[in-house]
């Protein structure tokens, strides 16, 4: 029981760390505390957080998925192309985008669980494949999804992540805005930019954490990561559940693709590589074990926010982008070391 307590405190430490980093940067540069800055950071974080939630599942099984970054761009390109050039309704394109992610996830899972490829290698290959496929889908052109001011009204999907317009600020404003977004019919409430996406993130976090700790799929995902052989010898259909972990990861890469399309005006083919590392890094900072068998969704989400704060906050302190990479890398090493020390302490 003592162990459970210490694990809990790891996520608590990360939560405190998020607040500490935020306050520290704000102390060095007051403009960081600006409501719009905060909104920007939240906006840019949605797709990273979604990728992070997804990749937590393969990580817990002791694997990894490197294809989520380029995959996300690929799915966004495909979806955008359908809207722009094939006249597919936005809702259908979104569905196809997500299903594309699910399909690539299923490919990853099959390669790893059924064909027996090492996760690193299998997903490295699908990373290359999705990068190429993205360019093929778009004919190598940048594809813009409809903007939120699109005259045809196709930009409605942006409102999934935020509601628009106004300059009220502070927590009160944000709250009012969130409420407003939930009740769009009431015009008095919709006059502020509100991070509705964050509400979705919280809901997804709760849902996936619940799935991880209260369903058979979650239980077996963790068991595969702790001891795949013993799980198999207990008569569990390990192959199926192992594939499913990658399918869930693909699903979230698909969701991330929509968030990405909503955030960036145009989706550029050939990008996306490296984005998965921020998501994976966030999961690891958030206490997901690098060898599998342990991890939480809330840990991952907090971890991704640590990385996002560093990434977007350090420039406010006058540090250039290169330093911010160095610091993020160092934070990751510390997180992995904590994991190793924790495991060693349990063994001795």
């Amino acid at each position: 029981m003592t162990k459970k307590k210490s694990v809990f405190s790891q996520e608590l430490i990360i939560a405190i760390l998020v607040i500490a980093i935020y306050l520290f940067i704000r102390w060095r540069n007051a403009s960081f505390g600006n409501y719009n800055t905060l909104l920007n950071i939240l906006d840019i974080s949605y797709y990273y957080v979604l990728m992070g939630i997804g990749v937590t599942f393969p990580l817990i099984t002791g694997g990894v998925d490197l294809s989520i970054g380029t995959g996300m761009i690929c799915y966004a390109l495909a979806g955008g192309y359908l809207i722009r050039f094939s006249g597919v309704p936005v809702w259908a394109a979104m569905l196809i985008t997500v299903l594309f992610g699910v399909a690539i996830g299923a490919v990853n899972g099959t390669l790893i669980s059924i064909m027996g490829l090492p996760p690193f290698l299998a997903t490295l290959c699908t990373c290359m494949i999705t990068r190429g496929l993205g360019s093929v889908c778009s004919g190598s052109f940048a594809i813009p999804w409809p903007t939120d001011t699109d005259p045809t009204g196709n930009g409605w999907f942006h409102s999934i992540f935020k509601t628009t317009i106004n300059n009220d600020s502070g927590l009160y404003g944000a709250l009012k805005g969130s409420v407003g977004a939930l009740f769009p019919m009431d015009k008095r409430l919709t006059f502020i930019k509100a991070p509705l996406g964050f509400v979705w993130i919280i809901l997804l976090l709760l849902l996936m954490q619940f799935i991880l700790s209260h369903t058979k799929f979650g239980r077996y995902t963790i068991a595969i990561g702790s001891n795949k052989e013993a799980t198999m010898l207990s008569g569990v259909n390990v192959k199926f559940y192992h594939v499913m972990a990658y399918v869930v990861c693909g699903l979230f890469a698909g969701l991330a693709a929509i968030a990405y399309a909503a955030y960036t005006p145009t989706v550029q083919p050939g990008t996306g590589a490296g984005m998965e590392l921020d998501a994976i890094g966030g999961a690891i900072v958030g206490g997901v074990s690098t060898t599998g068998g342990y991890g939480t969704i809330y840990g991952t989400v907090l971890g991704v926010y640590v990385i996002m704060l560093l990434k977007n906050g350090l420039p406010f302190m006058g540090l250039n982008a290169n330093w911010q990479q160095v610091i993020t890398g160092t934070v990751l090493i510390v997180a992995v070391l904590i994991d190793i020390i924790k495991r060693r302490a349990m063994k001795k």
Partner: peptide, 8 residues
């Protein structure tokens, strides 16, 4: 190795 999941 094959019988139990020790960390559970």
């Amino acid at each position: 190795r094959y019988g139990i999941v020790v960390q559970k």
